[in-house]
Write a protein that binds this DNA or RNA. Structure first.
Lengths: 233, 233
DNA sequence: GCGTCTATTGGGGAAAACCCGTAGGTGCCC
DNA sequence: GGGCACCTACGGGTTTTCCCCAATAGACGC
């Protein structure tokens, strides 16, 4: 599992950093970060406007592997207040040093998911009194929800686009057949559905396998999903 | 794929119908509905405060199988305005009769997902001018997002439902074998790799297929990927 | 027209996957 | 102790997929 600091990537990614800054300003927050968990690539991609020193420290220690804001929030539906984390070993490992970098362990993470098992986590922090934090939370949780959805959408669009450019040229017919295969249909079924011979279905499927560099049909389906060519049913 | 009208279930479910009524009242909406999609069984479970006659009509025709508010929104991250649906055959089949029941085709669906591939769709409608609708949308989308999350969370807490929707517990061995299958290995290969009989591999694979509700191995691989059980190679 | 490319269909046979069982050993929980 | 889920293994038979082969028809460009 790799951690990629997208803030080091130029182009449209800079706009995303600015978006986080803007979010902080508008919602009276100290810091904001976004992490995209891709079960497909298995990686974590992050943006944050934390101090550069903390980001570097975090990446060097590979904290994304144990960070409770990631592991816990990724299993939640609703926003998670950091105050609800267990004060366990993992928590201390991450939030102990964080304090030395001027970071406070009062925050909130809003999870958002896409249809491919992809998960985005928008986290924000604010150093203030508990009561202030509670009222702030109530006020901004709706906006955060919306912001998280938009951010995740933008990131996924970008990723989908770049994948498309790298993806092999799968014909319409091949894609169609892969989609039905992923839906659990046999070659005969698909032939009936598309009103073509099951032999033809087999040819297209083989062609798709070759283009995807897959040895078997299940592998081809997996790769097609990873490349965004088809969607799991 | 079954459609179950949860509003016919008593207990806590009645409170959920009231929640929808309350939502409509507070946000100046005509109707609201919620649908939970199960990735495993492929089933749809819904609550709605639509007219009873429409609900019955909808269920009798099994519109949940073709309803664009379901099929399209289930693949989206962000809220989907019904105005953006293709005016295709499916759309007409559902929204044509809807008009006869006093329903307007101006609406919005907010998708929300949990960590197990479960998906909830909160839909709302309001009959008014386009400009009014646009400003209303902007005003309430944050609240709808929050409401959808809470609703989905509440529904998922319900044990009966969560059991049905939750990703089945795939054993370590099954997961391991699914992963190798997705990597393009044959059952014989996997048997050699894991130093077990290829028949045993087949048994595990069959068991995994059954747990995932998949008819074929490619389908099982697709679902396992979506559920985050395995990663494509 | 003529080569080329893609989509289509087909045969035959080998290989793999799938379905129906049975069955022993393990570990866990009530 | 008994039930339950898991991992392991085997057999026989059916279905499906896969592979190598050939062939036709339409589209496209030169």
């Amino acid at each position: 599992m790799d951690l990629i600091d997208l803030s080091s990537v130029p182009a449209a990614d800079e706009a995303r950093g600015e978006f986080l800054d803007q979010l902080c300003e508008e919602l009276e927050l100290d810091y904001a970060s976004y992490a995209a968990l891709s079960p497909v690539s298995g990686g974590v991609q992050g943006y944050a406007n934390y101090p550069a020193a903390w980001k570097e420290f975090y990446m060097r220690r590979a904290f994304h592997l144990i960070d409770p804001t990631i592991s816990t929030s990724a299993r939640s539906i609703a926003p998670v207040d950091w105050g609800r984390f267990d004060r366990d070993e993992r928590f201390k490992t991450v939030f102990g040093p964080a304090r030395d970098f001027g970071l406070f362990s009062q925050g909130l993470t809003v999870p958002v998911r896409g249809p491919y098992g992809d998960c985005g986590l928008l986290s924000v922090t604010r150093e203030c009194s508990s009561s202030e934090w509670r009222s702030l939370k109530r006020k901004i949780v709706g906006n955060l929800q919306t912001a998280a959805v938009h951010f995740h959408d933008a990131v996924m669009q970008g990723e989908a686009l770049s994948r498309m450019l790298r993806a092999p040229q799968i014909s319409t017919r091949e894609k169609e057949i892969l989609q039905w295969v992923a839906a659990g249909k046999s070659q005969q079924d698909i032939g009936d559905i598309l009103a073509i011979s099951h032999r033809t279905v087999e040819v297209h499927l083989r062609s798709a396998r070759e283009k995807l560099g897959a040895l078997t049909t299940p592998q081809a389906v997996g790769r097609a999903i990873r490349l965004g060519i088809i969607t799991p049913d």
